[in-house]
Amino acid sequence: MWSPVVAGVDGSAESLAAAEWAAHEAVRRGRVLRLLHARSWHPRQDEAEFAHAGERHLARRLLREAEERVLAACPDVPLYDEQVEGPVTAALVKAADDADPLVLGSRGLGRITGLLVGSVALGVVAKATRPVVLVRADTAGQEEEAAGTGRRDVVLGVDVTEPCDEVLAFAYEAARLRHARLRVLHAWRAPDPLTLGPGEIGLVGEPQRAEEWLGFLSAVLQVWRDKYPEVEVLQTVVEGKPSGALLKAASGAELLVVGHRLTDRPRMPRTGPVTHAMIQQAGCPVAVVPHY
């Protein structure tokens, strides 16, 4: 049985935008949409029954609001809703195990303080072992725009020294489903003379280095060109920091796809610096694909 597309719902504008995005994705993939509200409550023993009923009523109202938003955008999407008890982050991480993908609302950077808002979404991304898509409220309506003549790219960030099949497969499939062009970007940095190893040549000019990196990227993508011949691909290599290059490339994109390396080390899960920057600053939906 195919996994559903799952959207986390909490009543915020971001979660409603995520539910709408997830509905379009479910239609594209031919999947069922699961609207999920995770509630975390800790009432006193003498208030337990009353508080529990109140939480269920609120969750039902939030889910109904999300259903109305979804059906207005995608009247034919098959869907069902569900309430689960928290902790919220743990409940959503568990939901991600059976999702394809899990879609959550993200506020990105606060407009006044510049501080990251949305610790639940960030915590889920850090711990989930399946893809998670983060959607901002100000991207609402982009699905309809992309369905018209103004179709936009799917952007993929790739490190050609450590390419990952899971990330590449997600991006190619996303582009195929949308009939969109896939823009694959690798950012490289010129070698520091102080860090060159024995026998390494540091006098090669920038055009030659760029051409060499483009060759590496082309080699990485060759097998995927064979698997997805219908997907138009634009290969790009730029000199500079990956985060800055990706943010520029993703401006106006339909979807940005980045990887998140998982680890078995017994420490607090966290995202890498590039993925973290994309979650905070990218103006389009961001798909974070975990891999080892």
Rank of each mutant, 00 (worst) to 15 (best):
Ser3Tyr: 15
Ser3Cys: 07
Val5Asn: 10
Val6Cys: 11
Gly8Lys: 00
Gly11Ser: 06
Ser12Glu: 09
Ala17Gly: 14
Ala18Gly: 09
Trp21Gly: 10
Ala23Asp: 11
His24Met: 04
Glu25Trp: 06
Arg28Gly: 14
Arg31His: 12
Ala38Glu: 01
Ala38Arg: 07
Arg39Asn: 05
Trp41Ala: 15
Gln45Pro: 01
Asp46Trp: 07
Phe50Lys: 15
Arg56Gly: 04
His57Tyr: 11
Ala59Tyr: 02
Arg60Val: 02
Arg60Thr: 14
Arg64Leu: 14
Glu67Tyr: 04
Glu67Asp: 04
Arg69Lys: 09
Ala73Ser: 07
Asp76Cys: 05
Asp76Phe: 07
Pro78Trp: 06
Tyr80Lys: 05
Glu85Asn: 02
Val88Trp: 00
Thr89Val: 06
Thr89Leu: 01
Thr89Met: 04
Thr89Ala: 08
Ala90Asp: 11
Ala91Cys: 00
Ala95Asp: 03
Ala95Arg: 03
Ala99Lys: 03
Pro101Lys: 01
Leu104Trp: 02
Leu104Gln: 02
Gly108Phe: 06
Arg111Cys: 08
Val120Ala: 03
Val120Ser: 02
Val120Pro: 01
Ala121Phe: 00
Ala121Trp: 00
Leu122His: 13
Leu122Asp: 03
Leu122Tyr: 05
Val124Glu: 00
Val125Cys: 15
Lys127Ser: 09
Thr129Ile: 02
Pro131Glu: 15
Val132Arg: 04
Val132Met: 13
Val135Lys: 05
Val135Cys: 07
Thr139Ile: 04
Thr139Phe: 10
Gly141Asn: 04
Glu145Phe: 07
Ala146Met: 13
Gly148Ile: 04
Gly148Val: 03
Gly157Met: 03
Thr161Asp: 10
Glu162Cys: 03
Cys164His: 09
Cys164Tyr: 08
Glu166Tyr: 01
Val167Glu: 01
Val167Met: 06
Phe170Met: 12
Ala171His: 05
Glu173Met: 08
Glu173Phe: 05
Arg176Asp: 14
Arg176Ser: 15
Arg178His: 10
His179Asn: 11
Ala180Asn: 13
Arg181Ser: 06
Leu182Ser: 06
Trp188Ser: 06
Asp192Lys: 01
Pro193Trp: 10
Leu194Gln: 09
Thr195Ile: 04
Leu196Gln: 04
Gly197Phe: 13
Gly197Ser: 08
Pro198Tyr: 08
Gly199Pro: 03
Ile201Gly: 07
Leu203Lys: 12
Val204Asn: 05
Gly205Glu: 15
Glu206Asn: 08
Glu206Met: 14
Gln208Asn: 05
Gln208Asp: 07
Glu211Pro: 00
Glu211Lys: 09
Trp213Cys: 12
Ser218Gln: 14
Ala219Asp: 15
Leu221Gly: 08
Val223Glu: 15
Val223Tyr: 06
Arg225Ser: 10
Lys227Gln: 09
Tyr228Leu: 10
Pro229Met: 14
Glu230Ala: 12
Glu232Thr: 11
Pro242Tyr: 12
Pro242Gly: 07
Ser243Val: 01
Ser243Thr: 11
Gly244Thr: 03
Gly244Gln: 10
Ala245Gly: 05
Ala245Asp: 02
Leu247Trp: 07
Lys248Gln: 15
Lys248Met: 13
Glu254Met: 15
Val258Gln: 09
Val258Lys: 02
Leu262Phe: 02
Met268Glu: 12
Arg270Asn: 04
Gly272Asp: 11
Val274Thr: 14
Met278Phe: 13
Ile279Trp: 03
Cys284Arg: 03
Val286Ala: 01
Val288Cys: 11
Val289Met: 05
His291Asp: 14
His291Pro: 03
Tyr292Trp: 11
